[in-house]
């Protein structure tokens, strides 16, 4: 990009950046909420509920910021409830159900490990963003996802290096999630000017650190690093699975039926 972006396009770039990060957190929050009353123990219900609310909090600040940069202005609720699947920019990792059949706790921990490690690296870098709002959001969120990472890691270690059955099921869960790791490094939604100006973190720059950290958890958990072909994934371009449409129908139904309702 040789042309300096005008102020409008700079706003638009930052809007799209915050939107994608916010959508990752929002969709993860909604999926994670499905575990409430379905986790193996009530203590885990509460843990995953807390964690879903952390993600929702991150989504709210990121979407509020994205909305403040859009023309016309949009609120966090406009963005969360009144967009269709094709307008969401989250990665496919977070939108898929927790298993082909019954929700699989191993899948939840594998996915949480991947996402929270990615978010931890991302927010850690974003803390020094030249955009003060993004830096402040990241400074708060990095502590939250650090705990998510720890929670997921402890479970992956226990299930991977547990019984014969838990090992097999944890390996299957890791195998199911790994094709969606590659999409985390898709930087097509990050305008190059945001990188030049130190506003955004380049997702590709997180690759080595993320894979290294994931590898070390898998090794400690006696799990094999899956040898998988990355999934065709265009979430950052709005190309989603039908699972996101279903998730949004659930999440947005009430708000769309009773627009403007409050309590």
């Amino acid at each position: 990009m040789s042309r300096q972006p005008t102020n409008d396009s700079a706003h638009d770039s930052a809007h799209r950046y915050a939107l994608a990060l916010g959508d990752d957190a929002l969709v993860m929050a909604q999926r994670m909420g499905e575990w409430i009353a379905s986790a193996p123990q009530i203590e885990e219900d509460i843990a995953l509920g807390n964690l879903a609310l952390d993600q929702l909090g991150q989504a709210r600040t990121l979407l509020s910021y994205a909305g403040s940069l859009s023309e016309p202005l949009r609120t966090e609720d406009d963005l969360a409830y009144l967009r269709d699947a094709a307008d969401f920019r989250n990665v496919l990792l977070v939108e898929r159900p927790w298993g082909p059949g019954r929700p699989d706790f191993g899948v939840a921990m594998a996915r949480l490990l991947v996402l929270s490690t990615y978010q931890w690296l991302l927010y850690d870098g974003l803390r020094s963003s030249t955009d003060a709002t993004l830096a402040a959001i990241a400074a708060k969120a990095v502590k939250e996802v650090d705990y998510h990472r720890d929670h997921a890691r402890l479970w992956v270690l226990r299930l991977g290096d547990g019984t014969e059955e838990s090992h097999l099921r944890m390996q299957a869960a890791v195998d199911a999630e790994w094709p969606y790791v590659e999409e985390l490094f898709d930087n097509s939604f990050v305008h190059p000017a945001l990188l030049d100006e130190g506003v955004a973190v380049d997702p590709t720059s997180l690759r080595a650190a993320l894979l290294d950290r994931l590898d070390s958890v898998l090794a400690e958990a006696t799990l094999e690093l899956p040898d998988v072909t990355p999934a065709e994934a265009g979430g950052r371009r709005g190309e989603h699975t039908d699972h996101l449409t279903e998730l949004l129908a659930d999440m947005q139904g009430l708000a769309r039926t009773h627009q403007g309702a409050t309590w």
Partner: peptide, 20 residues
């Protein structure tokens, strides 16, 4: 009180249940 598989997880469950 709470249930947990081991001490490390018990500490985390305690964090989530009793210090939120």
């Amino acid at each position: 009180s709470l249930h947990a598989p081991d001490a490390e997880m018990a500490l985390r469950n305690a964090r989530d249940v009793y210090t939120r």
